[in-house]
């Protein structure tokens, strides 16, 4: 091969060049399969399944989602695509009525006045530690009664944190089950609710709270 062809590069004689580089070798198929299996197993664990379903309630359509840890999302009066867009984007989502049925049943009983407390595992992984503390605390508020934001702040041992409590409740992913609708302003006004004030009021009336 002449000097010029050599300096122009490899495309003039790809076969020979390929031969040189081939010395690097090729992994054996068993090793490649092993690595592929490992990646598939990792991905199965990384992208867990979120199962969801929807049903009609006196307050409109309710959407609920569960993970292997328990209930992870509850939304009222939203659209399906909006609900799904708020689920963990790294997970597979799958609608499955029978898997979600044990959870749905408790909601139906609640709306039929046959249940005032939910008994199910809750998935708090998408909440901050502070938010989880607030949400777990307010689960103790009995149906038919209300607390103020200040009372909740006192209950978690941070009496000056009313505003932070309000924020933690405002982003509660587990509506109804974690009863943030039972927390109202110190002056007796309803303040805010993720699914709208009208829904908050209906929920409190459904529970027989004095509002």
């Amino acid at each position: 091969m002449n000097e010029q062809a050599q300096s122009q590069g490899m495309d003039n004689q790809p076969d020979e060049d390929q031969n040189i580089v081939t010395l690097i070798g090729t992994p054996n198929p068993g090793v490649v399969r092993g690595s592929r299996r490992r990646i598939n197993e990792w991905f199965e664990k990384t992208a867990p399944v979120i199962t969801w379903d929807t049903f009609d309630s006196p307050l409109g359509r309710v959407y609920i989602a569960i993970t292997e840890q328990g209930l992870s999302n509850v939304e009222i009066g939203t659209s399906e695509s909006e609900f799904l867009s708020r689920l963990d984007p790294m997970a597979r989502t799958e609608r499955n009525t029978s898997v979600v049925a044990p959870f749905t049943r408790q909601f139906r009983e609640y709306f039929d006045h046959a249940r005032s407390r939910f008994e199910m595992r809750l998935d708090f992984r998408k909440t901050t530690p502070f938010q989880q503390r607030v949400l777990e605390t307010i689960r103790a508020i009995p149906a038919g009664t209300v607390w103020t934001y200040g009372q909740v702040a006192k209950a978690i041992g941070e009496p000056t944190a009313s505003r932070a409590v309000g924020h933690a409740l405002g982003t509660n992913p587990l509506l109804i089950v974690v009863p943030c609708h039972r927390v109202i302003g110190n002056d007796g006004t309803l303040r805010g609710y993720k699914a709208g004030l009208e829904t908050k009021q209906k929920l409190l009336r459904l529970e027989g709270a004095p509002v």
């Binding site: 399906e80 799904l84 867009s85 984007p89 597979r92 989502t93």
Partner: peptide, 18 residues
Amino acid sequence: TIQRTDSTGRAMAHDTVG
């Protein structure tokens, strides 16, 4: 991607995994 929905109205979150 995850904000979009496909023709059946399902969010694309599922599709990201797929």
